[in-house]
Design a protein around this nucleic acid. Structure first.
Lengths: 145, 145
DNA sequence: TCACTCAAGTTGTACTATACAACCAGTGGC
DNA sequence: GCCACTGGTTGTATAGTACAACTTGAGTGA
């Protein structure tokens, strides 16, 4: 396999993966779509943020985020706190239930990945992880690939 | 980075990639969605096949494929030929226009990937390609990750 | 101060991708 | 010839998304 073939393969396999990931994530965790999971994860990581920040970070329309957040709030997984300094702003926070579900889905996803990667030598795992991180890091904030 | 951390990273990065891929593919090629692109590519590779084969191969419902194919036919990118040996079957083939569009999108995607991977050493490209193929190959037909 | 502009978010509308179920139409065994 | 099976279409419903119009609050300049 030369470099061009390798690029072809990377393109094809990344595409194949992307095509399937969303649906399979939904099947694995009916209670939390891939998007919801991502948003909840962001909230956990940042310990709360604004809807606008989510929209910017994930290149989603603010209306999309608004509806996602509304659904998450209905499900009692996030709560909104109006920013006292700027009444336009709602700072989003995970609820206890949100934190719990997030942890649970994360565990289950981790287990699935672990199973899938069970027979990989550690050296390969490390390299694969490094390649993926490097690949994804290419996108400059706000635009994606 | 130990093996567990590597699995974590793989999970996180694959998830991040999946979340973004569809939208960005759509932005790059408004004329051909990721699914349409994939189906057209399969048709080219196999030199024609049945809708049922596409559904099985990509873990899509037959109704989904049926509608996708209908759209591609309306756009004159594929044509159906009734199998003379089994009149239930329609063998799908790329049209000239389909072949042209597919080549064009493939080129443009390849260019994007190439740019993104431009400064990678060939050895890394080969390994990354191999890892991805191996990762995706894990899924047994019908179920995914 | 008041009007204007900008930012955050919501809502109306539309579209795509998808699944599931019900169906129709050939095929093939018996 | 009947029946089960297979390939495919259509009806219906849902999720996720974008864009445009709107509401409300904040800041700014004359």
């Amino acid at each position: 396999m030369d470099a061009d073939e390798a690029v072809e393969t990377i393109q094809r396999e990344m595409t194949a993966f992307a095509r399937r990931a969303r649906a399979s994530a939904g099947r694995m965790h009916p209670e939390l779509s891939l998007v919801s999971y991502t948003l909840l994860g962001h909230l956990e990581e940042r310990d709360g943020c604004r809807a606008t920040d989510l929209a910017a970070h994930y290149a989603l329309d603010k209306s999309t985020v608004s509806r996602q957040v509304a659904a998450l709030e209905r499900a009692r997984l996030v709560e909104r706190r109006v920013d006292p300094d700027d009444h336009r702003v709602q700072v989003l926070h995970l609820t206890e239930a949100g934190r719990r579900i997030l942890a649970q889905v994360t565990d289950s996803r981790r287990a699935a990945f672990r199973e899938r990667l069970a027979d990989w030598p550690e050296e390969d795992l490390r390299r694969f992880a490094g390649y993926l991180a490097r690949y994804n890091a290419w996108a400059t904030p706000g635009e994606e690939g």
